[in-house]
Amino acid sequence: MSALREAEETYRRMAYDTFAQDLKMGFNLGFCRTFAVPEIARVLAATGRMTQHTRVRAKATGAMMYGLFEHGLDSEQGAGTIAALDRLHAPFAIGDDAFRYVLACFDLAPMSWCAAHAWRAPTDAERTASHTFYLGLADRLGIPEVPATWREFETWMRTYERAHFAATPQGRELWQATRGMLADRVPRVPRVLGPLAGAAADSLFDDRARDAFSARRPPALVRGATRAALRARAWRGRRTRAREAL
Rank of each mutant, 00 (worst) to 15 (best):
A7D: 08
E9Q: 14
R12E: 09
R13A: 12
M14G: 12
M14H: 09
D17K: 11
T18R: 15
F19W: 08
A20K: 15
D22R: 11
D22G: 06
M25F: 06
M25I: 06
G26P: 12
F27K: 05
G30H: 09
R33N: 10
T34L: 05
A36N: 12
A36D: 12
P38Y: 10
E39L: 08
I40W: 10
I40A: 15
R42P: 06
A45G: 04
A46L: 10
T47N: 10
R49Y: 10
R49W: 07
V56W: 10
R57Q: 15
A60H: 13
G62F: 13
G62Y: 13
A63C: 01
M65R: 07
Y66D: 06
G67E: 03
D74K: 09
E76P: 15
A79K: 15
A79T: 08
A79C: 11
T81G: 00
I82P: 01
A83K: 11
A84N: 08
D86L: 11
R87H: 05
L88F: 14
H89S: 05
P91L: 08
I94R: 10
D96V: 08
D96A: 15
Y101K: 04
L103P: 06
D107S: 15
P110V: 01
W113L: 14
A115P: 01
A115K: 08
A116V: 03
W119Q: 11
W119S: 13
R120N: 05
A121V: 13
E126T: 05
E126L: 01
R127L: 03
T128N: 04
T132M: 02
Y134E: 00
Y134H: 11
L137D: 03
A138K: 02
A138Q: 03
R140S: 06
L141Y: 01
L141S: 03
G142F: 02
P144H: 06
E145C: 04
P147M: 09
E152C: 00
F153T: 02
Y160M: 08
E161V: 00
E161C: 01
R162P: 00
R162T: 04
R162G: 03
A163K: 11
H164Y: 02
F165A: 01
F165Q: 03
A166I: 00
Q170H: 12
R172I: 01
L174H: 04
L174A: 03
L174N: 06
W175G: 08
Q176H: 08
A177D: 05
T178W: 14
T178R: 12
L182K: 01
R185G: 09
P187Y: 08
R188H: 14
V189M: 15
P190F: 00
P190N: 00
R191T: 06
V192D: 05
G194E: 12
A197P: 05
A199H: 11
A200Q: 07
A200V: 01
A201S: 14
L204A: 13
F205L: 07
F205Y: 14
D207Y: 02
D211Q: 15
D211C: 13
A212S: 15
F213Y: 15
R216Y: 00
R216S: 13
R216C: 04
R217C: 08
P219H: 02
V222C: 10
V222Y: 09
T226R: 13
A229G: 12
L230N: 01
L230V: 02
R231F: 03
R231D: 06
R231K: 09
R233K: 06
A234I: 07
W235F: 07
G237H: 08
G237V: 08
R243D: 02
A245L: 07
L246T: 08
